[in-house]
Amino acid sequence: MMTVSQRLFHLLLFAYPREFRHEYGPQMAQLFRDCYREQTNQSPIGLGVLWLHTVSDLFVSAPREHLERLRRENAGMSNPQRVVLTLGTCLAIIVVAFLLLSYGRSHQVTSILFFGKALDALVTAGVVGNLIIFLLRLTRLDPVKTALWTMLLVNSILFVLAWALGSRVDPQINLPGMLIAYVVSFLFWFALHWLWAKSKGDAELAFEQRK
């Protein structure tokens, strides 16, 4: 019959990646049972020592297995140069758009202010959307689909928020202008991610994932 400790250990096995758990879970449970028998026979504090040892091992080994799985499955993210380049490009675009907008507002440059709303949407959606995309890229999700749905959702939510909050401050708010701004922002960021995904590294990654 399984003891409470053994049942608890079975639950802790869920901290490991699925493939690892399937391959070695029964062996690890067997090992825990052996250790449990040994420790509880040895001393009254044996069970405490066993749990301390097991939990400290779990904190080290489970993240290691997850990291290894991520590295294996998402070879594109293991290339540090590519990650830095991608992050740098997005950051540079956001900074340039932000500086351009600030300059246009402080100096009342009509030609820049004409695109003011689009630049505003580009910066806001760029920061939020790209952050989500980079976090999602750690998973096995398709990079193009991830960019498409993230940018679509982020731009839609930001548009609704801007419209809802903006209409309270200014009842004469230019709704079509704002809508165009977020459509432009969506198209710009999605096109950028699509082009990036079509470049060599992601093409190789997509091929690896289809295999």
């Binding site: 070695y24 690890m28 090992l31 097991t54 400290s56 091992d57 080994s61 297995e65």
Partner: peptide, 11 residues
Amino acid sequence: LGPGTLYGTIK
């Protein structure tokens, strides 16, 4: 060696 470290290394 704990169970995770042992079987991770074995793998």
